[in-house]
Simulated scan of single mutants.
Amino acid sequence: MSRICELTGKGRQTGHNVSHANNKTKRVFLPNLQNVTLMSEGLDRSFKFRVSTHGLRSVEHNGGLDNWLLKTSDTKLSARALKVKRELKKAAAPVAAAA
């Protein structure tokens, strides 16, 4: 399983450990990923994602999973998140046509 957030695309970064003597050795910074279940109000279902804590805060700030998926570009989302986004758009299309 790759260490990439499924909603924000945040992945690992590389850098250096720097000692007091200014010696530099390579290291990896990993995102804080959590397994979470997010509820979609539009589809009335819940979905499991592997999301960074920063991404989880962003989802809550934007008003939930549905708003986040509709606002986020497809390049950042994982394949599973894109599938949910397509389902959400398909479910919202008949409602928009009826109005």
Rank of each mutant, 00 (worst) to 15 (best):
M1R: 12
S2C: 01
S2A: 08
R3P: 00
I4S: 05
C5L: 05
L7N: 04
T8K: 02
T8W: 02
T8V: 01
T8Y: 01
G9W: 02
K10R: 12
G11R: 06
G11F: 01
G11T: 07
R12C: 11
Q13D: 11
T14P: 00
H20Y: 10
H20A: 14
A21H: 12
A21G: 03
A21S: 14
N22T: 06
N23I: 05
N23S: 02
T25K: 09
R27Q: 10
V28M: 08
F29S: 08
L30I: 11
L30H: 13
L30Y: 14
L30R: 15
N32E: 13
L33P: 08
L33D: 11
L33C: 08
Q34C: 07
Q34P: 00
N35W: 10
V36A: 11
V36D: 10
V36P: 03
T37E: 15
L38A: 08
M39C: 04
S40I: 08
E41S: 12
G42H: 06
G42W: 02
D44T: 09
D44Y: 01
R45I: 02
S46T: 10
F47V: 05
F49E: 06
F49G: 07
R50N: 09
V51S: 03
V51P: 01
T53N: 12
L56R: 09
R57A: 15
R57F: 02
E60M: 04
N62I: 00
N62D: 11
G63V: 07
G63A: 07
G63R: 04
D66A: 11
D66I: 09
L70S: 13
K71Y: 06
K71A: 15
K71L: 14
T72N: 02
T72Q: 12
T72C: 08
S73V: 07
D74L: 07
T75I: 07
T75G: 01
K76Y: 08
K76A: 10
L77W: 06
S78M: 08
S78H: 08
A79D: 14
R80M: 06
R80H: 13
R80P: 03
A81P: 03
A81V: 05
L82E: 09
L82Y: 03
L82H: 09
V84K: 03
K85E: 01
K85I: 00
E87C: 00
L88K: 02
K89L: 11
K89E: 15
K90F: 01
K90E: 14
K90G: 00
A92C: 00
P94F: 05
P94D: 09
V95M: 09
V95E: 15
A96W: 04
A97L: 14
A97M: 11
A98L: 13
A98Y: 06
A99T: 12
